[in-house]
Design a protein around this nucleic acid. Structure first.
Lengths: 210, 210
DNA sequence: TAGATTGTTAATCGATTAACAATC
DNA sequence: TAGATTGTTAATCGATTAACAATC
């Protein structure tokens, strides 16, 4: 039994990368791989890889010959708890929202999209990634009806806070925010903000200081 | 004189948020604000805000009445070095690449896009965010010609490594990678990878463990 | 056995938080 | 002055790295 509560967040964040590396090796026909190989394919040091496995409690390793890949994959899958499905909605179906809805990365690992929403009448009714875009009016109802856990915000800056209020009011407790604003939400709601511009600015900073 | 080298990376990453908060207050007509207000608008604690200002060496604060906003903005702008422009290209103009090219976040702070590139003949020649999409063939030439520092990768998984090789070969030393693969590049090249799926999985993890 | 590799410990590093003296 | 708020110090926290004994 894996105790998820005690695994550091920084470790959990690397698990999807580890799973990808393991998957690649398995489909290549390998059954075992040492930490050095798994680490290199995941973009971390071998010490960190082994440390993470230790923290997770994934003892798929065999001293002298490396990790048994199928066992390891099962243990890591359990950390993310991918057996229990989690539902999400995407709010705002402009360029970015469409990209997210179509992304394979948003289909992986036990998550299911149950609705796409937009304010713009020109977008409502359109088909995006196999789903029909609904109007924001229906957002709260769909969240309650399906028991949606996560809302992904990709709206304009001006409507982000309003939409956050709506989804929180309807019971959402996790928000993935792609809009460059600081959302005001109750402390019981977890917000992860991804500001794509910040990443670019960090690289520009790095480029200037070479 | 601000010594950028000594400012911790974690602090630098928050500077764009601070600048946004300051800009909002200035356009609202304020001239001063205490750390508590600036921190709340930036989504951090007041202790962290003051600590960051201290680390940056931005002494715009006046004990008793808060920070002088215009002075502070100038000092923070200097940290990011936004006076020196940095050029970038976007490789891969699918849903995500188009979203990035159109994003206001990609226009801020001293960075200029000089080209959009794709392999798909159906996309080459199209207008996206005011630029004409060029074929990958021209990628290396444009990078050399304009002295491009940063490449933003938003290609398919299968061509990401190839495109990374091309841009590195042409002299790019910073890559912002949105493709869920681990890129193999010389150690002199800085790669920042943003895996949008990982963010969603982290929230799903959180939702399951409530 | 001998070589390879894990799993864990201890040291290091870096970032955050709390508290408060300095001071406008 | 008295109140408010900074800037810095010290304590805490969490994550990474290095090294190596255990062991397959």
């Amino acid at each position: 039994m894996v105790n998820e509560r005690l695994v550091p967040l920084a470790t959990v964040e690397r698990v999807p990368q580890y799973l990808r590396a393991i998957g690649g090796l398995i489909s290549h026909g390998d059954e075992h791989a040492p930490s050095a190989v798994l680490a290199e394919r995941s973009g971390v040091s071998s010490a960190q890889f082994r440390k993470d496995m230790s923290l997770i409690g994934a003892h798929g390793g065999v001293r002298g010959s490396g990790y048994e890949l199928v066992t390891l994959r099962a243990a890591l899958g359990e950390v993310l708890g991918s057996r229990e499905r989690v539902k999400y909605v995407i709010v705002g179906v402009g360029n970015l929202g469409s990209a997210l809805a179509s992304s394979s990365a948003f289909r992986r690992g036990g998550v299911d999209v149950v609705g796409l929403f937009d304010t713009d009448p020109a977008r409502v009714g359109a088909q995006v990634a196999g789903l029909t875009v609904l109007h924001d009016d229906q957002l709260a109802d769909v969240i309650r009806e399906h028991g949606v856990s996560i809302a992904v915000l990709a709206t304009s800056e001006s409507s982000a806070q309003l939409m956050a209020d709506v989804v929180v009011g309807a019971g959402v407790r996790e928000i993935l925010n792609f809009v460059p604003v600081v959302l005001q939400v109750p402390s019981s709601v977890e917000v992860r903000s991804v500001d794509l511009g910040v990443e670019l600015q960090m690289l520009a900073f790095h480029a200037r200081n070479r």
